[in-house]
């Protein structure tokens, strides 16, 4: 892999919860324009690591490099980087208000004018086939619909990196198959994806790179073909 294909790098990341060391990662690479997967058993530190990589959690030791440049929490360009990232959370949180307010919120925070927010929200809703939800309140929609709304909200900023934390974990079958069929279509070639999952179908269908975590340590990094299928039991 050439350096040009690397968008985000993590070195010597150490994270403690109280006295307990929960993450210890020497070297991690996120490849540009690819589907990067983060797999591993429950409690192996996947979500913790995702929060560090997505610049949500800054309480750790180690270095992050975005496009070759070190992330510095003291510098004001942090917000600039963060605004190029998006996160789709497991059990997404919707803000009090309508669905369209929620989808447009990231653009609102970026000071985009109302007219073009309205336009983009409509477009995005059509792509996800949730136009009829737009005027509903945040608490009037189902779990599967909520996840679609949060996907729309994450994609509307056209992020460079999109972090996805077990998106189908608590969804019904229909929503899971919707996600499996359509998520890859929604992601453009310029977007980089880091996806945490337990779902083998997703790994088999989408993964370009696999990173396997166990007890806070990276135990495997590489292509799915090289990844011994016997290893899947750890997922």
């Amino acid at each position: 892999m050439s350096k040009q294909n690397v968008i985000l790098e993590a070195r010597n990341i150490v994270k403690y919860y109280g006295e307990q060391k929960v993450l210890d990662i020497e070297n991690f690479t996120l490849y540009k324009g690819a589907f990067n997967f983060l797999i591993g058993p429950n409690g192996s530190g996947k979500t913790t690591f995702l929060q560090i990589l997505s610049l949500v959690d800054k309480d750790y030791r180690g270095e992050l490099y975005y496009k070759g440049e070190a992330i510095d929490y003291q510098r004001d360009n942090l917000l600039k980087s963060r605004r190029k990232f998006s996160v789709i959370w497991q059990n997404p949180y919707l803000y009090k208000g309508s669905v369209s307010y929620n989808i447009g919120l990231p653009l609102r925070l970026r000071g985009v004018n109302k007219k073009s927010i309205h336009h983009k929200v409509k477009q995005m809703a059509e792509k996800l086939a949730i136009t009829e939800l737009l005027s509903k309140r945040h608490d009037q929609i189902s779990g599967g619909e909520k996840q679609k709304v949060s996907i729309a909200r994450a994609l509307i900023t056209e992020p460079e990196i999109i972090f996805v934390d077990e998106p189908t974990n608590s969804l019904d079958k229909e929503s899971i198959s919707f996600f499996n069929q359509h998520f890859s279509e929604l992601v453009t070639d310029e977007m980089t994806v880091l996806l945490i999952t337990h779902d083998l179908t997703q790994v088999k269908r989408l993964a370009n790179h696999i990173n396997s975590l166990d007890k806070g340590k990276l135990i495997y990094q590489g292509c799915p073909r090289e990844y011994n299928s016997n290893n899947f039991h750890v997922i």
Binding site: Q51, S54, L55, V56, L79, R82, R83, F85, S86, V87, W89, N91, P92, Y93, Y95, K96, L105, P106, L109, R110, R153, T157, F163
Partner: peptide, 28 residues
């Protein structure tokens, strides 16, 4: 919900915007 804060940060909210979102969520 603790998720509110994480979501706000991940959406790219500034500190002031995070505070405003917090107030809006707690408004009732």
């Amino acid at each position: 919900d603790d998720k509110m804060y994480k979501t706000a940060i991940s959406m790219g909210a500034t500190r002031l915007q995070q505070f405003k979102l917090l107030l809006a969520e707690a408004r009732y």
